[in-house]
Design a protein around this nucleic acid. Structure first.
Lengths: 142, 142
DNA sequence: ATAGCTGCAAATGCTTTGCAAGGCC
DNA sequence: GGCCTTGCAAAGCATTTGCAGCTAT
């Protein structure tokens, strides 16, 4: 489609920095995928979805490499994985604390503005264990 | 493969009623599974887990039938499906509005007491769509 | 040079399906 | 009897893995 590089995207150097800073070797494939992911505003992708975007942009990557890259990025804190639907995993380029709408009909995710959900009275984790994350998913029919 | 009844479980008639009321034909397999699910306090199961419980109780069911039953029960509102982990689906015998702890190490789920989480300022669903459910999952390391 | 990546295809694991045989009303 | 259910095995997906060849440093 019309996914050519726009001047609005982050410059390649930024993405390169991001990879270097995280300790991941900036290979051609990872750079291309990182550019797709981080070059625009925040987005939610599946492995399959990113793979297709890559194909359309004439970036040669195998699906296995997409999975590897997504997991590597997630392990380094560049992405966040979200489980809403057991049929496939979503990855979010926004790693800040925030929550999601999930459109049951289309399977799309959308960020909820950070202040419109507030959680009062968060319970202690049982047995002195540490809370690693709180996920709020608002499922909407569409 | 005769099922013996335990006096500690809910009486069979209760489970039978439950199935009849929902319009599901109370077959031997569904009755046995329903008894495992609803005969004790609330619990969270996976298909595989329920299948193993059935085996240990000398209840003869195939894994496919367990999946069918779980989905049938869910469709009739007797169970609630929860997505926390893309590797497998959980089913909750508690269909009331409530939330969960997820123990990342063991993959276990635990109910959060209903009043210890309170959500303030729930946003409107975009585009006039209706909220079908709000899931809060607190992930804890253990 | 070499440790780390990639690609392919095969393998895995959860879940669904097709269809003949069986069971509930 | 008729129709819904079951069971098995096979098929389907999303995801992972093994390994030979490639590449960034």
């Amino acid at each position: 489609m019309n996914l050519q590089q726009k001047k609005t995207s982050a410059p390649d150097t930024t993405v390169l920095e991001k990879l270097r800073a995280s300790g991941l070797r900036p290979t051609r494939q990872r750079l291309a995928l990182a550019k797709l992911l981080f070059g625009r505003g925040h987005c939610h992708v599946t492995a399959e979805g990113l793979f297709n975007e890559a194909k359309q942009t004439h970036v040669n990557v195998s699906l296995a490499t997409v999975y590897n890259a997504l997991h590597d990025f997630t392990a380094k804190g560049l992405l966040r994985e979200i489980s809403v639907d057991s049929s496939s995993s979503y990855f979010d380029t926004n790693t800040d604390d925030h929550h999601h709408f999930f459109f049951e009909g289309t399977g799309e995710l959308q960020d909820i503005p950070p202040d419109s959900v507030r959680i009062a009275a968060l319970p202690e984790a049982p047995g002195g264990s540490a809370i690693s994350r709180v996920d709020v998913i608002i499922r909407v029919r569409d």
